[in-house]
Design a protein around this nucleic acid. Structure first.
Lengths: 235, 235
DNA sequence: TGACAATGACTGACTAGTCAGTCATAAATG
DNA sequence: CATTTATGACTGACTAGTCAGTCATTGTCA
């Protein structure tokens, strides 16, 4: 997904068949007005966002070229400026756009009322590892870590929307576990970060070291939960 | 080669007070031979490395200008190229240069033979948090996380020299703890990452969120150790 | 030891190239 | 056909890397 195969195609000959009529709805031989202007504008915006996400993740903010984003999105460079003020605000808006569904996804865990706290945390971690750590979304997290210090707005937003809320939720869960007697360590509620730490490690490991030594994040998280809740089954 | 008179006019007036005699050792009125050519060359190399480290940490690889590094180091841009092949290899060599003392520092923990495993891990973590997480060295770690995917050589080196060794050492410590009966969770030896996770969290937190919510990394690590070794004192 | 020549570390103006952002023009739309 | 939307050639600012020239230091010799 992050390959730069684009280079080969460069601009040889093929006359890329204006995609306004062609590419979008390949089947429609006639320019059916099915999609209103606004709809197609939104589609393009989406294509730009997706392309930009790939490029930013692969190269980082500074090294990403708008020409590449445009090419990948199948639009002209000028079109980007119909949707975004400049590269910087595009980046910021991008992150914001991407984070919302990410958080939604994570909080969409079925809140089984009968489940134990461990089951809830486990389900949460499973979702996180499968939907974030093991996918391109994980690289988004890494991107935020990487560029955060240079984009305080992004770091702020991420703190407010993800970190702060996530930790608050986790703290509530821990306190529930303590109240129910599932968790013995009362101090854990003071540092919900500990509960989440291995998940973040998994994200970083995935990006940097999985080539050298694959890491079974779910296994690891199970062991971590054993520390907190006690061994599940007598190993 | 096409120019003619330009060269002669070159640096007509300002005569920038050659800094070889002046700036370097401002106090030394006489050109004391204390510093041989080679010595001062090494000094300059050191200055370049320090300056480059600051700039790369602050801006990331792509956004860092060699002009800025040169200015900060107090040398001309050309001088950089007497010491490094190009920007990229400078970056790579830089990381390598910086990591070695970092690892040395960490392994320099006094290996008290009488100490408990918990004490050893605690001492280790204390060193790490004080010497890395709370200092500019922590930003180096973040820099590696940030640029790693674009510099596989750097990521490889970091894995080999730091991660791999660190985890091996930690695993040995955990196994010792299990053998001694200090640690109950046998599976922990399979994932030494868990032991280390909160320390890494602390590094990232420090760079990104400490403005919003300061984090007492040592406290957090204590709680984490309580999970692994059992409560130290009845809280 | 003093004078002079050789050395090479250092400089910074310069080149060649890159890329964010613009805008005159063209295409689609209604 | 008037208006909205898209295009991509173009511009100007910026920067990695070069190299002819400078000069403090070192070496040599009388």
């Amino acid at each position: 997904m992050t390959n730069e195969a684009t280079k080969t195609t460069r601009k040889s000959a093929p006359k890329p068949a204006n995609r306004r009529t062609g590419a979008k709805a390949s089947a429609s031989s006639k320019p059916k007005p099915a999609s209103s202007r606004a709809e197609r504008a939104a589609e393009r915006r989406g294509a730009i966002i997706a392309a930009a996400m790939d490029e930013f993740i692969a190269r980082g903010f500074a090294a990403t070229r708008l020409d590449d984003i445009a090419k990948r999105a199948g639009v002209a460079k000028g079109t980007i400026y119909l949707h975004f003020k400049d590269k910087e605000s595009m980046f910021e808006e991008l992150i914001r756009t991407a984070i919302v569904p990410l958080v939604t996804r994570l909080w969409a865990t079925p809140p089984q009322p009968g489940a134990s706290v461990r089951d809830m945390v486990e389900g949460f971690a499973k979702t996180f590892i499968e939907e974030v750590a093991a996918t391109r979304r994980g690289d988004l997290v890494r991107l935020i870590v990487a560029e955060g210090p240079r984009f305080p707005e992004v770091a702020d937003f991420y703190y407010r929307e993800v970190v702060s809320r996530g930790l608050a939720g986790m703290r509530a869960l821990i306190e529930l576990g303590i109240a129910r007697g599932e968790i013995q360590h009362k101090n854990l509620a003071r540092f919900p970060q500990i509960m989440v730490a291995p998940a973040l490690i998994a994200v970083i490991w995935q990006s940097l070291f999985s080539r050298h030594a694959p890491l079974d994040a779910l296994e690891m998280f199970q062991v971590h939960l054993d520390l907190i809740f006690g061994e599940r089954r007598t190993a």
